[in-house]
Write a protein that binds this DNA or RNA. Structure first.
Lengths: 271, 271
DNA sequence: AACGGTTTTATTGCATGCATTCCGTGCAAC
DNA sequence: GTTGCACGGAATGCATGCAATAAAACCGTT
């Protein structure tokens, strides 16, 4: 990881000199408005520090920058983010409620360790959510939405062709997120994002073989076509298979306890 | 502005080395400035204040004590809970991430208003989750789990027979929660609880007619029997129908104008 | 050297002070 | 009568200080 990624947040090391004006330098305070608004729009509301810290920390955890089980020292994070402990602690509480951080009372916070059993469980829930998402997408998505997903797909394929794993994965995630969004159910999309963030961290532990990677791309291709044809039953099956393969790839790195394996199994039931 | 003098001696020796009891868990009604002894309950556990505040506020919101769209004044809540603003604000941030509270930057927090469209969306997600929960319950629940749900069911029926709506509803909720739990998927249960809490508040807007109430009890009866028989396909259908009826009952009686969200006691003792 | 208990140190949890922002109010201008 | 704006009270956002707690270091005893 290049150190420059953090430079934007280390710009104000002297917060403690005297009671001065509010911190405005370390975390660039951009508009908290809906996507589409320019970050530097004049007159836009500034994002509160606790919210900025939340997003930065969540990003770092999901990206694996902050490794599972890593200790989160408040003082260190404050220095890195250039904020005081109050907004940082507010952010940590939210991350804990999201499941990305574990709070040990009087002993600080750690990044949630990756528990294979828990990952299995989340995969099962994601399976149910994706099935619903697929149905809603087939029914409600605008043609423009599908076109956008197709564009994302081609970008993803381009990165696949170049062997750019990180970029590939980014678009891969975007496709799944958009699929959950275009059905028009915001609560579904939010829930999907929440759970997806928790398993996204596990991707580093799944060794993506060349064959599996190619297969995943083919599966995405089929998913896209089923969506374009608005063939909900077929899309549901494809999504379930795709997720099952993804989980299997993960479980290869984390051997499963056969006794409890079926507890997290993806939902059955024919289309 | 007064330039407050900063004490330079940071290494101030600590006076106390005695194992003094932590502030409290029950959240005292008085200012915690005095470290003096207080006749607190003997079973005082060591729950942090922000966590205790979180649970209390969540309970009050879900129960409707804090009505939808009610303004949450920090100082008032601090006085009610007997804590300072720091842990209170941490709790509010978590409630916001759970969707029970809406934060208006620089303008405070309000209890999330009940948006019929959002409730519909959540019902759809709950449907997908209940379907998965039913399958897992049929497959994995221990006989003791089913017996426990049956016991809850009978208690619920008893309250129905007495016309005790609040108690009936409490057991009703417990049954659904347990159903999500006994399948052994903790992530599913947590997600279900999270979303369920958001729609539970809407129950006051659904006027439960005598006929609908009786029908709901019959539906629960059938659900219980399908679970006892571990008939997953039938259970899935029953759960979906039950949820559909619940949503229909809510949507029928929800006031057309969302501004009528003014029932319930917003805050006792407030101005 | 190992062990139990005590002091030290680092870190968390909470309360509080202060600057900033928002909103209502009153007054002036149109 | 309406609009615009300055002013003031009130509430929020954040930084910081202090107490409480757990881990680490210490130290004498066996």
């Amino acid at each position: 990881m290049h150190a420059d990624s953090y430079r934007r947040f280390a710009g104000r090391p002297r917060v403690t000199s005297k009671p001065s004006r509010r911190n405005t330098a370390a975390i660039p305070r951009r508009a908290a408005a809906s996507p589409g608004a320019r970050p530097d729009s004049p007159g836009a509301d500034l994002q509160p520090l606790h919210e900025a810290a939340l997003e930065r920390l969540r990003e770092r955890i999901v990206r694996g920058d902050l490794a599972p089980a890593a200790k989160l020292n408040e003082r260190v994070l404050c220095a890195q983010l250039g904020i005081s402990r109050t907004p940082l602690r507010e952010a940590l509480k939210v991350l804990a409620s999201e499941g990305l951080v574990k709070l040990l009372p009087n002993r600080g916070a750690v990044v949630s360790p990756i528990d294979p059993q828990r990952v299995r469980e989340i995969f099962a829930v994601l399976g149910a959510l994706e099935a619903l998402a697929g149905e809603l997408a087939c029914r409600n998505a605008a043609e423009a939405d599908i076109a956008e997903i197709r564009a994302l797909h081609y970008q993803m394929v381009a990165h696949y062709a170049r062997g750019e794993l990180a970029e590939y994965f980014r678009f891969n995630q975007q496709i799944h997120i958009r699929l959950a969004e275009v059905g028009g159910n915001a609560a579904l999309a939010a829930t999907y994002r929440l759970l997806n963030a928790q398993v996204r961290r596990a991707r580093y532990f799944a060794n993506l073989s060349g064959e599996r990677w190619a297969q995943a791309v083919r599966e995405h291709e089929a998913i896209l076509e089923a969506l374009a044809a608005r063939d909900a039953p077929r899309l549901t099956v494809l999504l379930r298979e795709h997720l099952g393969h993804k989980m299997a790839a993960f479980l290869q790195s984390f051997p499963a306890d056969p006794e409890t394996a079926d507890r997290g199994a993806a939902s059955r039931g024919g289309p």
